[in-house]
Design a binder for these strands. Structure first.
Lengths: 192, 192
DNA sequence: ACCGAAACTGAAGGATCATTCATATCTATA
DNA sequence: TATAGATATGAATGATCCTTCAGTTTCGGT
């Protein structure tokens, strides 16, 4: 499909040179179509990029909701570990796209989009925490907010600063542990 | 000083419209100088931006080293709290610049610079952890790495997604707690 | 095979920008 | 005050790039 080729090409171009080097001509060339064709699917460059970002956000959102459904009602340790792992899986699964997309945020104003995504994520975590049987949180919404920030931020920083296999392995090992430790600290002791 | 005016103007322009809207003319205009003047201090736009980023990184690096010196030899709780607070203070002190600068990373290739900054930060934390009397880490370097990722990431995400006073207050309250909890979990129990 | 619609093409228009340089202004020293 | 060097100016240059549209190709149905 033409449109799929355009998407793939866009990500490739983004990875090759960042948003700065992403031109409509270059994307079209890499996709094997002409510039004009692109404009039949998207009114401007920005629309193309936004569509990519939206798709990525939706993917991750869905993955987190699935994980939340699976984990509902589990004990604190399972939830902490499960959320961290689901997040890592979702990000890693489409790491190429994720990395490429981070760059778009700077050129265009994605703050509204990112804000919405963060809020949805916090919301999902919050309801998940509300149903953990063996923990009561003094300030559950703050805990959910912080957990979302820890998850989102750590992965992002590693991807941007030094995305090596070694570092991802560390993340995979340490992030669940960190989440668990934080949630235990934020909850008023175990009740089971 | 002309050069200071240029720096300030650059950050203002960055905040107003991101890297995408940052043009040499606009920066010069806002600084109250002419384009040509800018080129007497920096060979190109990129050099100007890199200088800004470097300065910011150095500021934060210095702040963290100072904090580390102050905290050397303290117990785990003090170190965790101190590092988190120092980090927040450093970032908040120049939040305007910090936010502006995040945007530069996408347009130009700052990955090398960011990688170095992250490594220095991890190193500082690592030596700090090595001198905590009441804790022994199974894998100290991983703990230092993870702590750096947690600190760097969470602040960044909040700044980008929803930089409200309320959220910073939450960060200030929860981040030290999260750091402490993680470090306790990563160390093999308290020895004091 | 023929036709209309849908999809595709890519050269050209029109903007925007980074960068240069010939010229002007300031500053400090003799 | 005269002068050299340092600093500042901003119109002009040349490049890049988004976007458009008149014309071509492809495709499904008859």
């Amino acid at each position: 499909m033409t449109i799929e080729a355009i998407h793939v090409a866009t990500i490739q171009v983004l990875l090759a040179g960042g948003v700065g080097r992403l031109t409509t001509t270059r994307v079209a060339a890499r996709a094997g179509v002409s510039v004009g064709t692109m404009y039949q699917y998207y009114p401007h460059k920005q629309a193309l990029l936004f569509a990519l970002v939206q798709r990525q956000f939706d993917l991750i959102d869905t993955a987190m909701r699935d994980a939340a459904a699976r984990l509902a009602g589990s004990d604190l340790g399972t939830v902490a570990h499960g959320v961290a792992t689901a997040w890592l899986d979702a990000k890693m699964a489409d790491m190429v796209a994720s990395r490429a997309i981070y760059g778009i945020a700077a050129e265009f104003d994605l703050s509204e989009m990112m804000s919405r995504a963060a809020q949805r994520m916090t919301q999902v975590i919050d309801t998940l925490l509300a149903n953990v049987p063996d923990a009561r949180f003094a300030d559950r919404s703050s805990a959910a907010f912080m957990l979302a920030a820890l998850l989102g931020g750590s992965v992002r920083v590693v991807m941007e600063a030094e995305p090596s296999e070694e570092n991802f392995a560390r993340l995979r090992c340490e992030l669940p542990r960190a989440c668990h430790a934080y949630l235990v600290a934020a909850s008023q002791g175990a009740l089971a």
